[in-house]
Design a protein around this nucleic acid. Structure first.
Lengths: 109, 109
DNA sequence: GGCATATGTAAGTCTCGACTTACATGCTTC
DNA sequence: GAAGCATGTAAGTCGAGACTTACATATGCC
């Protein structure tokens, strides 16, 4: 895992509102408007956060048609389990250097 | 763990420069000026990041006198190992609600 | 048709965090 | 005492991200 990927996840999850979003849909998939009401958050704002979370690969959205025919955008958690400690961070940062500096020894092919 | 504590750690670690700082001192304690040179970062900026990391409990600093008598502020990693997944996040957010809303049943004492 | 509810997005504001420059201070060593 | 290197902090700039208001569009129901 590169530090860029790790960073995307950590930055995405390092925000109070987004933490709440994750906690909320941890209980099961919900559609956007429902989620917005539940969290007491404006829909455009929620969109932004969901977007961020989705890009980080933490949630997955899918547009569906309800039985009544109304379009509903459901979001659910993507499975993720991240370990954050000195080793994982050092490894991620080290992964960036691969190929960056001219020929790092000891890591052939 | 409350979401506030979790958030402090995640927000602290969710930044490229701070990730580099952690990776750097993962190899052993260093003093500020040394670290700044090593990372190619201005000292005041590094101070800010170290401050943030220290408040989150990820690093520990200690002012020491070198054998020559010069004051050096050393920083080293605090031991930490955080698990980031749906359960831990949901648990942290849930922890905030304890006592917030009037009398949540099922969690006596 | 009119009201409610849903998805999207455009555009603007505004605050906070990141970052720089600059300075004060203390201790060596020459 | 001047040069070199260290710790601190004050103050100011700047941009990104957070957030709001507003609008366009589609469907179902009375």
């Amino acid at each position: 895992m590169t530090s860029e990927e790790l960073l995307a996840v950590l930055a995405a999850v390092g925000h109070a509102q987004r933490l709440r979003v994750i906690a909320e849909i941890a209980g099961g998939r919900m559609y956007v408007s429902e989620l917005a009401r539940s969290l007491g958050m404006s829909r455009p704002l929620l969109y932004m956060h969901l977007d961020r979370l989705e890009k980080a690969g933490l949630v997955v959205g899918s547009l569906e048609l309800s039985t009544s025919g109304k379009a509903l955008k459901y979001f659910e958690l993507a499975p993720f389990d991240l370990r954050v400690n000195a080793e994982t961070i050092a490894a991620a940062v080290a992964a960036d250097a691969e190929g960056t500096v001219s020929d790092v020894k000891g890591t052939p092919t």
